[in-house]
Amino acid sequence: MTDTGLPASVAALRRVREDPHRLGHRPHDGREPVRGIGMGTTGPAHKRIIVGYGFWIFLLSDIVMFSCFFAAFAVQRDATAGGPKMADIVDLQRVAIETAALLLSSYTCMLSFAATNVRNLLLTQVFLFLTGLLGLVFVLLEAWEFIDLANRGITPQRSGMLTAFFGLVGLHGVHVTAGGLWLATMMAQVQVKGFRRHIVHRLICFNLFWHALDIVWIGIFTVVYLIGSLS
């Protein structure tokens, strides 16, 4: 039964009478509940939703892990122990290129997902490859930055601030590297096995992972590099 035609107040009154505390058992808007997403009384969700949701939960836990490294950086920001300050080690130009590479890689990752959705093997692979290439550029730039700093005697062993800096940025770099390994594996799987159901599920997860890394990088380039370069 729909409530169309009734004044909204009457419909609301009826809803309250039927389910005074609105505690569920029934969707509020009177529409048929959507099946296959695991909500309400509709039974188990489809595998695609389950996989995506489980991975989403994993990503949240990963972001909590990053938040600890952010907290450590925030706490140790001034613990330079007489060594270089943040402003001394930031190279804005390199950070800008790194940011551009990672943002573009997020974009191409999204395009590869669009290609996956229309089951276009070639475009999926091309965009995945571009994603990996941009990720590689990012990792190499970061490695260059670390080597560069090390050559100037700026290592994590120097001070608490540098420890927190290398730890946070390095952890993100490790994630991007691991993502690159995963991406290579995924490309091989897509090539050999095509768009089987579980391969597509993994592509969804990879897509989520890569975007999440970009979100973390937004935090890093803002808090570590840009705000760090201010003082």
Partner: peptide, 21 residues
């Protein structure tokens, strides 16, 4: 992981020297 880095590669997250906390 932070404590491991302190112990294995001499970083300063939690040491009582060089700005560790």
């Amino acid at each position: 992981a932070m404590l491991t880095l302190d112990r294995y590669v001499g970083w300063h997250y939690f040491t009582n020297t060089a700005g560790g906390n």
